[in-house]
Nucleic acid binder design. Structure first.
Length: 550
RNA sequence: GGCCUGUUGGUGAAGUGGCUUAACACACUGCCCUCUCAAGGCAGCAUUCACGGAUUCGAAUUCCGUACAGGCUACCA
C-alpha cells in the first residue's frame, strides 16, 4: 500500500477519530516532579477480587512512589467486559481503603491524567492505532477463528511456535481493494501489530528486580484492537503508561514473558520506554503434595483479604509483613530500630526477592506480636475497641465501661526495653485479659483454670487482710510476700525449696500461684503485683470470695 | 511442543570468584534468668548451597547439560 492508500484506509477504519497523537501528547504533559520521583500504578481488572499478591504489588507501588515523592495511581483495566463483576470496582476501591494502601491519584482519587478507567479511553487507543495504520505499522486482520484454529493445529503438529506471525500472518499485506472488499462483506476484523521483529535477534531487557533478561525478538502480530474496537491489555498498557507518565511498572511475575512485546510496542509507538519491576508471586508449600504452588483462594484463608479483618490482624502489622516480603532486609532493620516505622525505611529493588516468596504464617504472627509490643496500652485499647465495635459489639461495650482499668491492664510491663509480646491479634485481647473486667471474670470465672490443685484459701486471706501492701514498688511487695512465706513455713525462694524440700510446705511461688489463680483464674499472667494494684484490695477480696464459692 | 524464569536448613532468606568453618530472622529443642507467663540471654539446629560436568590456584557465586517447580504461548488480564 502506498502512503496515500494507508491514509485512506485509516480514515475508512476510523472515520470518527478526529484527534491526533499530538493532541493527547499535549493534553498529558510531562509531570512536574522532583528528580528521581517514581510514578507507579496499580491496575486491577474489575473482577473485584483482591488477594494478597495484588496487595503486595499495590503496597510496593505505594511505598516506592511515596519515598521518592512521586505518584501512585489506580487504573481500572476493564477492557474486557466479560471480566466485569457487579460491584467489583467499588470493592477494589474499598479494599484499598480498608488496607490503607491508598493511591494519591486515579480512579475515584482524582488527578490530571484520566480518565483512569480503560473503558473510557477507547478514543485515545483508536487515535494511536489510526496513526499506526497510516504509518504501516498495524493492519486490519480478517482471519476467522476457524482459520486461526487450523493454523494453531498445524503449528502444534510441526512443533513450531504458535501464533500469527510471518507466513501465518495472511492479511499482513492485503491491498486496499482487498480490505475494502472484506469491509463491504461486513467481515469482522481485528487490528494487528505489524511486528518488525526477527526472532533470530536476541534482545536484552533489564528488569529492576530480576536483572538482565534475554529473549528472542518479538515477531508475533499481536492483536492491538479487538473486533469490538477495545484494546488488548498489551496495547492499553503501552498507551496508558506512556500518557500517564508511569516511570516504573511494578507487576506480577506472570508478565515477564510479555516483555519483548511490550518493549516492541513502545518502540513502534515511539514512546520513551518505562522501567519494569516484576514481583515474584506469593506461593505456599502444599501440605498434601509438597509442591510449591500459588496461594489459592479455597485452600488458604490467608489468600482472601477479609481474613485479616475478621481475625483482628492489625493492618499495620500486615504492612509490616508485606514490607518484609518486599525487601529482604526490612525485617532486620525493623527489629533493630524499635523507634522507627515503615515509612522511615528506604525500599530498593535490588533487595527484592527474585524467586517465589512462600507465605509464612508464623512470621506474620510474630510480626503482629512485635507490633503490639511497641504500642502503648492506650493505643492497644483504642485499636481493640475499634475492632470490637465491628466484630464483637458486646465486648466493645465492656471495653468502654472499663476503659481506665483496661488501659492499665494493657499497659502492664509495657515500659522498658523488653515490652511484653503476648498479643498477636485484636481477637485475642478478650481472652488474654479476661480477668481485667469484673463482669467478664464473674461469668467465666475459673472455668479456664487448668490447675487441679486445691489452694489454701485461709492462707491467702490471711495474707491479703494482714500483710498485703499496694502502695509500694514491686520489690518491696515481693519482699513482703517472702516474709509472709517464711513465717508460714514456706521457702523464700524456689531454690531453697529445691535444696531441702522436706523442710518446707512449699515456696513463695506456690503462694503467688494461689493468689494468681484466685484473682485471675489462671496459672499464667502478667506481673501479679501490677494486677493486684489495679484491682485494689476490695476487688481482690471479692475474687477470693468468688473462688471460695466456686 | 516452543519461549522464559527460578531451585541455599522446618520456614523467610543473606550471599554478585577468596574476609563463608554459609549472615540475620521466624519456628523448634535444651539451658540460664525468674513468683507464673511473655520478654530477654546463651547454646543447638545446612560439613554444604537440586543433580552431573566444565572453567579456575580457588565456585553457593561463571558456563553447559539434566531434573524439578512456576509462568507465558487467548479477540483474559
Amino acid at each position: 500500500m502506498t502512503d496515500k492508500e494507508r491514509i485512506e484506509l485509516a480514515n475508512i477504519l476510523f472515520p470518527n477519530i478526529d484527534k491526533t497523537r499530538d493532541y493527547y501528547e499535549d493534553k498529558y504533559p510531562e509531570r512536574d516532579l522532583p528528580e528521581g520521583a517514581m510514578v507507579t500504578r496499580y491496575g486491577p481488572s474489575p473482577t473485584g477480587f483482591v488477594h494478597l499478591g495484588n496487595l503486595l504489588s499495590a503496597f510496593a507501588d505505594m511505598m516506592y512512589a511515596k519515598q521518592s515523592n512521586g505518584s501512585f495511581f489506580l487504573r481500572i483495566e476493564d477492557t474486557d467486559q466479560k471480566r466485569m463483576v457487579d460491584g467489583g470496582i467499588e470493592n477494589i476501591v474499598s479494599v484499598l481503603h480498608d488496607f490503607d494502601i491508598l493511591p494519591n491519584e486515579g480512579y475515584s482519587f482524582g488527578g490530571e491524567y484520566g480518565p483512569y478507567r480503560q473503558s473510557e479511553r477507547t478514543e485515545i487507543y483508536q487515535t494511536y492505532v489510526k496513526d499506526l495504520i497510516v504509518k504501516g505499522l498495524a493492519y486490519p486482520c480478517f482471519m476467522t477463528e476457524e482459520e486461526i484454529a487450523t493454523i494453531k493445529e498445524e503449528q502444534e503438529i510441526n512443533k513450531t511456535k504458535i501464533g500469527i506471525y510471518g507466513v501465518y500472518a495472511q492479511d499482513r499485506d492485503l491491498s486496499l481493494e482487498e480490505v475494502k472488499e472484506h469491509l463491504n462483506n461486513k467481515d469482522e476484523y481485528v487490528i494487528r501489530l505489524k511486528s518488525p521483529g526477527n526472532p533470530k535477534n536476541e534482545i536484552e531487557v533489564v528488569d529492576c528486580i530480576k536483572g538482565k533478561l534475554k529473549f528472542p525478538e518479538h515477531d508475533v502480530d499481536t492483536i492491538l484492537l479487538k473486533k469490538d474496537g477495545t484494546p488488548t491489555y498489551h496495547f492499553a498498557h503501552a498507551i496508558d503508561d506512556h500518557l500517564m507518565h508511569t516511570t516504573h511498572v511494578i507487576r506480577g511475575d506472570e508478565w515477564v514473558s510479555s516483555l519483548p512485546l511490550h518493549i516492541q510496542l513502545f518502540e513502534v509507538l515511539g514512546f520513551e520506554p518505562v522501567k519494569y519491576a516484576h514481583i515474584a508471586p506469593i506461593t505456599i508449600k502444599d501440605q498434601e503434595t509438597g509442591n510449591i504452588r500459588k496461594i489459592s483462594k479455597r485452600k488458604d484463608p490467608w489468600f482472601g483479604v477479609k481474613y485479616y479483618d475478621e481475625n483482628g490482624i492489625p493492618i499495620e502489622a500486615l504492612h509490616l509483613y508485606l514490607a518484609t516480603i518486599t525487601n529482604t532486609n526490612f525485617e532486620e532493620w525493623y527489629l533493630s530500630n524499635s523507634d522507627k516505622n515503615i515509612s522511615d525505611f528506604t525500599f530498593s529493588f535490588d533487595k527484592q526477592a527474585i524467586g517465589g516468596t512462600s507465605f509464612d504464617e508464623a512470621k506474620l504472627v510474630n510480626l503482629c506480636k512485635t507490633y503490639f509490643s511497641r504500642k502503648s496500652g492506650k493505643e492497644v485499647y483504642e485499636e481493640t475497641l475499634k475492632w470490637a465495635e465491628k466484630h464483637d459489639v458486646e465486648y466493645s461495650k465492656l471495653l468502654k465501661d472499663n476503659k481506665e482499668d483496661m488501659i492499665e491492664f494493657l499497659s502492664i510491663e509495657k515500659d522498658g526495653p523488653r515490652p511484653r509480646k503476648d498479643i498477636s491479634k485484636y481477637s485475642e485481647v478478650k481472652e488474654e485479659f479476661s480477668y481485667a473486667i469484673d463482669s467478664l471474670f464473674e461469668k467465666e470465672n475459673y472455668s479456664k483454670n487448668e490447675s487441679e490443685k486445691d489452694y489454701d484459701i485461709d492462707l491467702v486471706l490471711d495474707y491479703v487482710n494482714n500483710y498485703l501492701k499496694l502502695d509500694c514498688d514491686n520489690e518491696t511487695w515481693f519482699n513482703g510476700v517472702r516474709e509472709f512465706a517464711t513465717k508460714n513455713g514456706y521457702a523464700a525462694s524456689p531454690k531453697e525449696y529445691k535444696n531441702n524440700p522436706e523442710d518446707y510446705k512449699g515456696h513463695v511461688g506456690d503462694i503467688c500461684e494461689a493468689i494468681r489463680v484466685m484473682i485471675t483464674g489462671r496459672l499464667k499472667s502478667p506481673d501479679l503485683f501490677s494486677i493486684m494494684k489495679i484491682l485494689g484490695k476490695d476487688r481482690i477480696q471479692e475474687r477470693i470470695d468468688l473462688y471460695k464459692n466456686r
